[in-house]
Amino acid sequence: MDSSGVATGVRILVVDDEVAIQRFLKTVLGSEGFSVHQAETGKLALVAAAVVRPELILLDLGLPDLDGVEVIRRIREWSPVPIIVLSVREREDDKVQALDAGADDYLTKPFGSGELLARIRVALRRAVQEAPEPVYKIGELEVDLGHRRVTVQGREVQLTPTEYDLLRLLVSHAGKVLTHRQILKQIWGAGYLEQPHVLRVNISNLRHKLETDSSRPRYILTEAGVGYRLKGDY
């Protein structure tokens, strides 16, 4: 792949207080051509974010001084830099909080280096790309945002307006996790934040229309306890 080409000199800030993880990430990212900067605490991370101006931040949620979610919030006050959260499995709520606060993606520890690099690439590409591509294509699903046309295996699928809005939201964030709150707020408005069943029903309907086997979805993936993600093309 053209990974080394994309990565050359790209500044990544790694925020983690575990020396072993720092060392591992530095090795992996460094060998891919990224320029790796490190911070061990939340406060140092905030300083480094301002000084280094990284193009992507890898942030561990369990920091010794500040709460990781707080770090995201403070960075988001002034910077749209992509933030990927590194978290342990047990803390679904933390992940949701981090995503709602503005994180772009999350990775559950332990993770493989391949997975990590893929997520980084998606995040970087989305950051560069201003507007979503007018035609999204993955597998046999094709969404033409310009013409509001959705086809599966070349066959046009009829969607309700809500379903289409939902799909468009997912498409415009393809590869990224969207939390339930984020989707509910975007599509139905803040008044629907506590009515998750609306979302479930529409996702279910969408799947029936788009997936060949809705109990083994290929496009609209569920992140249990967190939200949904449209499969990205990585």
Partner: peptide, 17 residues
């Protein structure tokens, strides 16, 4: 328990994935 409305197909899909 954090009870939320679940689509059972979704439940099965998640586990299989």
């Amino acid at each position: 328990l954090k009870l939320e409305p679940c689509d059972l197909q979704d439940l099965v899909g998640c586990a299989l994935a």
